[in-house]
């Protein structure tokens, strides 16, 4: 979707804040991160659905929220969608019904982190492109989740690397299947993306699924 999360190239945000990382972080950042990570153990959503939930909000709310507020907002939405909590419970702060048993304890959480969630999958189709091939990205504007940023749509690039089959976020985010698709690193000339202000010789790399690409 063409949401406020698709920030590449936008003007108006000013200087990069806290480049020397000297500001103390409040403890709730960690707690928001940890809750988000550990709630995934229920297996009711996936990382793409998580990202979709953080992005699919009114642009004014997206930009008005701090980073971890988006995480918490998305976590609440995912839990409500999955039926793990109700709006009434969120409103009152009071749990209803019998207490549940959490799927992971401390040791289980550590195991989750160590295992991660690899997205590479076996795929039975041959890749359509080879390293060095010229490609053009699609110029589609899907209403749903996608990982092709707006700034790189309808642009020419070159295949730099093939990563095998990977889970396709566009469908996985909406629980419509993993649909593994060939993933490539595509290299774009910065001038093709950003015009004459870009420095000649600079390039931008994006990891893009085959479904985002056409032959040149």
């Amino acid at each position: 979707m063409n949401g406020a999360h698709d920030l590449g190239g936008m003007h108006g945000f000013g200087a990069v804040p806290d480049v020397h990382d000297t500001h103390a972080h409040p403890d709730w950042y960690n707690r928001a991160m940890a809750m988000t990570v550990v709630m995934a153990a229920w297996g009711r959503w996936n990382i793409d659905a998580s990202r979709r939930a953080r992005e699919d909000m009114h642009p004014a709310r997206y930009l008005g929220y701090g980073y971890y507020e988006r995480w918490i907002d998305a976590l609440e939405r995912l839990m409500v969608e999955a039926g793990l909590v109700t709006e009434a419970e969120l409103r009152t702060g009071e749990p209803a019904g019998e207490p549940l048993t959490p799927p992971v304890d401390a040791a289980g959480a550590r195991t989750m982190l160590r295992r991660g969630g690899p997205t590479e999958r076996d795929i039975d189709t041959q890749p359509r492109f080879r390293v060095g091939d010229q490609v053009v990205t699609t110029n589609e504007h899907p209403r749903g989740h996608t990982r092709l940023p707006r700034y790189a749509r309808g642009r020419e690039g070159i295949i730099l690397r093939h990563h095998g089959g990977h889970v396709l976020p566009d469908t996985n985010a909406h629980f419509q299947g993993e649909n593994p698709d060939h993933l490539y690193t595509v290299q774009f000339r910065a001038r093709d993306l950003w015009g004459s202000e870009a420095t000649d010789g600079d390039t931008v790399m994006l990891d893009l699924w085959e479904t985002y690409l056409h032959a040149q």
Binding site: N30, I72, A106
Partner: peptide, 24 residues
């Protein structure tokens, strides 16, 4: 908001407090 959510999730048994500490 985070504090309220953590309280709800732990009391409801959705999250083991030890798991949160392990991640942090």
């Amino acid at each position: 908001r985070v504090q309220a959510l953590e309280s709800l999730l732990t009391r409801k048994g959705l999250v083991d407090p030890g798991a949160l500490e392990a991640i942090i």
